[in-house]
């Protein structure tokens, strides 16, 4: 009964498309994005990509903020998917996964693009940032600085890592960093710790102070809001930290060495561009690593002068090595 209705609706939509084809040669692409984080770092990056696509390709945008009520999510997805109105729907946020999967089952024709992660369902598209590649670069940079005993990096031969919780995706960050250190900076090791939470800046700060106290000069954090505390601690201790996901150089200018960027804006723009230019988005994971410009290590302007030229040169070699496949970043699960 329900299926019948849907067929009917699909039929009429088809008819409308056929009839409309005579009038307008190119339908405008309609894109929706749904998340609870559009005002926060990663969400802002997504918005930037969407806005750029809007300007460049004239796509029609619909932004839906999910808020924080679990009860609403399913309905919100269904409201978007039901009309079949949107060509692409970008989704960001792990709390939405359940609702997303249900909606995906109910509306299999709707193309959903889940940002930053791979789920079981084969009919969706996944933007998968190769965070281990970026973390390799972080390991290379911090390791080289520690090995070279550069100014401000001469306390010990240890570099630090603070993760949010000990979960696979955060392990990827750590493993990338460790490989980078091991391969590019002999004699340097990684001192790592997990905060156990993504939502406790105070705890992040406390753990960072401990590591700094042990002689670590630079800490790479992959810990969400907990990581904010790490960045603040760098400032308080007069040491260095490395930001993640988005450009965090401005959080504690002068004490943030670099930021490992996941260029969600690049990924979103790239996918929409492909769709417009006749390379439609297909189901399955799409990797955005260093090569595709989806992962980038940005050295902060405030500290760029303090990094020895040979380290910068070496880092660029490593980067291009990853990009053209000479360097393989592995996840030894």
């Amino acid at each position: 009964m329900k299926a019948k209705f849907r067929n009917l609706a699909a039929g009429s939509a088809l008819a409308a498309m056929l009839l409309g084809a005579g009038n307008a040669s190119a339908e405008t692409l309609k894109v929706a994005a749904i998340s609870g984080y559009f005002s926060q770092g990663f969400g802002i990056a997504i918005m930037n990509g969407l806005k750029k696509a809007e300007t460049d390709f004239g796509v029609e945008l619909k932004i839906v903020d999910t808020g924080n009520r679990a009860l609403d999510y399913e309905e919100q997805f269904n409201n978007i998917a039901k009309g079949g109105e949107y060509d692409l729907v970008f989704v960001m946020g792990w709390e939405l996964v359940d609702a997303l999967q249900k909606s995906n089952q109910a509306y299999p024709d709707q193309r959903f693009i889940f940002i930053d992660g791979v789920l079981d369902s084969p009919s969706m598209t996944y933007v998968d940032f190769v965070e281990e590649e970026g973390s390799y670069l972080v390991g290379a940079l911090t390791g080289m600085l520690a090995a070279a005993d550069a100014e401000g990096f001469n306390s010990s031969d240890e570099v630090g890592f603070i993760g949010g919780r000990d979960i696979p995706v955060i392990r990827n960050f750590l493993m990338g960093m460790e490989q980078g250190v091991a391969e590019q900076a002999e004699g340097v090791s990684v001192s790592s710790v997990f905060a156990g939470t993504f939502d406790d800046p105070a705890k992040g700060s406390e753990l960072a102070m401990t590591l700094y106290g042990q002689g670590v000069d630079v800490i790479y954090q992959a810990a969400g809001p907990t990581g904010e505390g790490v960045l603040q601690a760098a400032k308080a201790a007069g040491k260095y930290a490395v930001g993640v996901d988005i450009d965090q150089c401005g959080t504690a200018p002068g004490n943030i060495l670099a930021s490992m960027l996941k260029r969600a804006d690049v990924a979103v723009y790239d996918l929409i561009k492909g769709e417009v230019e006749g390379k439609p988005v297909k189901p399955g994971p799409v990797s955005y690593g260093v090569a595709a410009g989806g992962i980038e290590l940005k050295i902060c302007d405030e500290v760029a002068d303090k990094i020895p030229a040979e380290v910068k040169t070496k880092l660029e070699e490593v980067r291009s090595g990853i990009a053209d496949g000479k360097i393989q970043v592995k996840l030894n699960q």
């Binding site: 929706a32 839906v64 903020d65 808020g67 609403d72 919100q76 409201n79």
Partner: peptide
């Protein structure tokens, strides 16, 4: 109101 606002947000420019 809660349920209606979800559709309202998708179909109009008024936010929830």
């Amino acid at each position: 109101l809660r349920a209606g606002s979800l559709l309202m947000e998708v179909e109009t420019n008024a936010s929830r």
